[in-house]
Design a protein around this nucleic acid. Sequence first.
DNA 1: TATTGTTATACTCTATAACTATA
DNA 2: TATAGTTATAGAGTATAACAATA
Lengths: 162, 162
Amino acid sequence: MPALAHSEPTDPTSPTDAAPDSAVADFAAINSLRSAVMRLGRRLKHQRVDESLSPTEMSVLGTLARCGSATPGELARKEHVQPPSMTRIVALLESKGLVRLEPHPEDRRQKVVSQTETAEAMLEESRRKRNAWLADLAEGLDEDEWAKLRAAAPVLEKLAHL
Amino acid sequence: MPALAHSEPTDPTSPTDAAPDSAVADFAAINSLRSAVMRLGRRLKHQRVDESLSPTEMSVLGTLARCGSATPGELARKEHVQPPSMTRIVALLESKGLVRLEPHPEDRRQKVVSQTETAEAMLEESRRKRNAWLADLAEGLDEDEWAKLRAAAPVLEKLAHL
DNA sequence: TATTGTTATACTCTATAACTATA
DNA sequence: TATAGTTATAGAGTATAACAATA
């Protein structure tokens, strides 16, 4: 169990018996993370690789690329948005020809969303742009810093899904 | 690992003389990061430690706690928002008694924003709540994963400012 | 009666453009 | 003429509530 103790001597929510030292470090880390994630998120929003799609719309396409297909409800849960928001997103992606909607084979209430060949081509194109942006950013980081990011990326993904 | 390698062998914007291997790894990492940062940002927005303040408003208070004081323009640059947005944020924080506005000693166009004692107390209170939230999250990560987050946090901060 | 998805509506946050005042 | 901050306005993205169809 990670060390996460806090300064209050009693706390019913505390799961830990760990040392105070690393608790301070974790607290500093979570503060730093929170702030950095927010600011980085704002920058990503502006330096988006595809001008016509919002971050969440891109993320949905990425999820579909990984998962193959999903229902709107599943997508909403994965992206941590409410169902009505996903309805709107899916409708927009469909209007751009990036996803296909089919009836669910077993439940006529549901639908199955999957990406089109157009979406695949667009993702490939956007991959090129991302590389250019990455190259720019890379100039500001040394190899050691990148190594830390590489190590942390999967943990951040896990955190986002937890 | 998700399939993220790209097919382009040459990239004119690449500034690097690093091995091609790490370039591919960096590319995978940036994709993973982008997605995770976005989703995590959305979760942070909802699981915010103080219900009455938006993430950016909290971030401004954090910046003021670190820097002591700053002008609205400086804050806008640090938080990566436009000046009119910072005007609104500062006005809201002032209306809640969390910041103080004083005339700039040398330039009568500018103002100096600094945090109040109320803000300090609120940050302390929110620190307790954050620790509880952190303790919940901690159950899903092992010590090694937390170590990776701790190592990456300052790099993410640097990235956000770059 | 519970669940999936949709429609209608409103809210939060941010941006852009135009303005005021100081430099 | 340029800069700091403000005001007014618009837009993007998301949420909640109410509803329809199906389980």
